[in-house]
Amino acid sequence: MIARLGGINPLTALALAVLLVVGTYVVPAPSGPLAALALAVSLAAMAGVARRVIILAAAVSIPTWIFLAVMNAIVAPEGEVVRVGGFDVAPGALVPAAWISLRLGAAVAALGWVVMTTPPQRLVRALARRGLPAWSQYLLAASLAAVPEARRRAREVLDAQRSRGLAVGGGPVARLRATLALAGPLMVSLVTEAERRALALDARAFDARGARTSLTEVADSNGERTVRTVMWGLTVVLIVWGLVR
């Protein structure tokens, strides 16, 4: 089953994630978000990433619930108030806060499952096959590839500035000054590098209008296409139902 999930077209996984997110927000709580969360976690379990997906969803939904509970039940109590330890507390506000957090957690789990099981480059290739323009393919793929390099260069510049006596500790002002000393050289270097890359792109006929081929193809069976069409249709039905309800 793990191999089966890993082999599905990324667009099918994306369509399912969007359907789950829409279902989470359109179908009333708690049944809608609970069903979406259960399905997302089940899919994550089949792909072997259930623990990571649960942690990701909990990292968003639990702090949100705590902040909402503090605000709506204690700081600015909404609804019927009871006296607890010298404070006015509105216990009724805890339930709506739980539903908001549950919806958020379910949406994060639905998208998180796709993000964790789909290599971004595979998603870009699948989108390219469905007609994504070359320039937007480049933007997504090159941005994803540039992140580790930028983090490495940021560390290098920070080390170079430290070796010149820059202090990165101390109060907020000292730390901010350290960040500014880091940002300047990084920004100048990226603009300089962009010029070289633009010349390289032009030299490789980046703006050519002909059809392009890919070294690797992402499988997309007729069955998956049908399932995807049904899922997009269900998503539209849910949105319309949510609007007219």
């Binding site: 320039w135 480049y138 933007l139 090159a142 941005s143 590839a145 540039a146 992140v147 390099e149 930028a150 983090r151 260069r153 940021a154 920070l158 990165v168 907020p172 730390r175 901010l176 350290a178 960040t179 880091l182 940002a183 990084l186 920004m187 990226l190 603009v191 590098e193 962009a194 010029e195 890359r197 633009a198 792109l201 032009d202 980046f206 703006d207």
Partner: peptide
Amino acid sequence: VSTIALALIPRAVALNLAIGAIVAALKLP
């Protein structure tokens, strides 16, 4: 959008992420 702007955008995206991560690590407001 010119080719040089398109070449700059991925680097700028990475810069957003790198500086954002450093600022968060330095616990700046």
